[in-house]
Computed example of a mutant assay.
Amino acid sequence: MVNLNGTLITAAKASVAIDNRGLNYGDAVFETVRFSSGKICFWEDHYFRLMASMRILRMEIPMNFTMEFLEEELLRTINSSQNHKNSFRIKLLVWRQTGGKYTPKTNDVQYVISCEKLKTPFYELNEANCEIELFKDHYINSGLLSTLKTNNRLINILGSIYAKENDYENCLLLNENKQIVEALNGNIFIVLGNKIKTPPLTDGCLNGIIRKQLIAIIKLIPDFSLEEASISPFELQKADEFFITNTIQGIVPVTKYRKKEFVKETAKVLLQKLNLKARMG
Rank of each mutant, 00 (worst) to 15 (best):
K85M: 13
T255A: 10
M59F: 02
D240Q: 07
Q82E: 15
F234D: 13
K117N: 09
T32V: 04
L173K: 02
A12Q: 15
I188H: 09
N86C: 12
Y25C: 05
G143D: 06
A17V: 06
I196L: 10
I18S: 10
K178C: 13
R89M: 07
E227R: 08
K119R: 14
N83V: 12
P233D: 00
L270V: 00
E44N: 11
C205G: 05
I209W: 04
A229Q: 13
T10E: 13
K238T: 11
S142V: 09
G22I: 00
T255L: 01
R96W: 00
E241T: 03
L75E: 04
Y25R: 01
A229F: 08
S87F: 00
V252T: 13
D203M: 10
M59W: 00
N177H: 15
K13Y: 12
A278G: 01
P104R: 11
E235I: 06
G204L: 04
A17K: 12
V33A: 06
V16T: 10
L148A: 07
K277L: 10
F48Y: 13
M67F: 11
L206Y: 05
Q82V: 12
T77Y: 01
F88N: 02
F243C: 07
R58T: 02
Q82L: 15
R34A: 00
D167M: 14
L220H: 13
G38V: 04
R279L: 15
D137R: 13
I221H: 08
E235P: 08
F224T: 01
P104K: 08
